[in-house]
């Protein structure tokens, strides 16, 4: 911008504010800007496109053709197969099993983790007690510890509680590991609510839970949505915990997907694989495209330092 302005300057010098109107800037600089953006957009967008077109082709077409070419003959056969017939080891009932497992993991994890995190954030911002900041600090540091460090002790804890290998156990693990980021999110949000509102409610005789449910909750719906978005994508996309704490019957979708695609047996059916991959990615992608700005806000909240 600055460059093109200085280039226009000499013409204006001679006769004061006269001369030709400055041209709309379609300069080399602008071509560079749009060109670079276009190339990067291709890099990010093409894989999704490839996934979609591959999943709609038949295997013969894939074997002879070009992965970027649109399907000559659209078929939904791979999708059906991925959903209901694809094999992992002995099971051949498709990804649907993993999908429903993931749903059964996701819903209780979501409710529990958002409930716990919102109460944590509320207690940490408005009802501090001795040591509350210390626990919060540990939580924040905990978010950076590689999960592998805590994996085996959790196996022991779950085994002791009789929950190892069950969905309940996995749900609890998701709640625990979703706690740092979501607690931070809620704490920062509640801390931004004017302190006087809290004081007024106390003068009005409202206690811990009354203030939470009657004053704070109705004010914080957007942040609940942000937290839900973080948790849906996080839990749905989890692989490590699902693979470590459940067995083949209860594997979440990501684990099952990996087992289907990377299985060494049989002929590779790339169209079915891509349909399965797309199916697995569909839930977070939908959340992403529907939520738009709130997703970005969730990310930004995650990036804010504690």
């Amino acid at each position: 911008m600055a460059n093109s302005d200085t280039m226009a300057a000499p013409a204006a010098l001679a006769a004061g504010p006269r001369g030709p109107k400055p041209k709309r800037r379609m300069t080399r600089g602008n071509i560079m800007v749009y060109g670079t953006l276009f190339i990067f957009a291709l890099y990010y967008a093409l894989p999704l496109y490839v996934m979609v077109v591959t999943s709609l082709k038949g295997m013969p077409e894939i074997r002879m053709g070009n992965i970027f070419a649109p399907p000559m003959e659209v078929t939904f056969e791979p999708w059906v197969k991925a959903w209901s017939q694809a094999c992992t080891g002995i099971n051949c009932d498709g990804l649907s099993r993993g999908f429903w497992n993931s749903v059964r993991i996701l819903i209780p994890s979501l409710i529990l983790s958002v409930a716990v995190a919102s109460v944590n954030g509320y207690a940490l911002s408005m009802w501090k007690f001795k040591g509350s900041e210390v626990f919060f600090g540990i939580l924040m540091i905990g978010a950076f510890i590689p999960y592998q460090v805590m994996l085996y002790p959790i196996v022991i804890l779950l085994r002791e509680a009789g929950l190892y290998g069950s969905l309940t156990g996995l749900v609890l693990v998701h709640v625990a590991f979703g706690m740092p980021i979501n607690t931070l999110l809620f704490r920062n949000y509640f801390a931004s609510i004017p302190e006087e509102l809290f004081k007024a409610a106390r003068v009005d005789g409202a206690g811990f839970w009354a203030i939470f449910f009657k004053i704070m909750l109705p004010m914080s719906l957007p942040i609940f949505v942000v937290s839900l978005i973080i948790q849906v994508t996080g839990i749905w996309n989890d692989f490590l915990f699902g693979a470590s704490f459940t067995g083949p019957d209860l594997y979440p979708m990501t684990v099952q997907l990996n087992n289907i695609v990377n299985s060494v047996q049989g002929v590779k059916e790339y169209n079915v694989n891509m349909a399965a991959t797309l199916l697995t990615g569909l839930v977070p992608l939908t959340i992403y495209f529907v939520s738009g700005k709130l997703f970005v806000r969730g990310i930004a909240a995650g990036a804010v330092k504690g």
Binding site: E196, L197, K199, A200, A206, M219
Partner: peptide
């Protein structure tokens, strides 16, 4: 004593009205 038990009413600078 708790604020509500003290027999006081309070008015704040930012009004602190419950928005909902």
């Amino acid at each position: 004593a708790e604020p509500s038990e003290r027999g006081i009413g309070m008015v704040f600078q930012s009004y602190a009205l419950y928005p909902q």
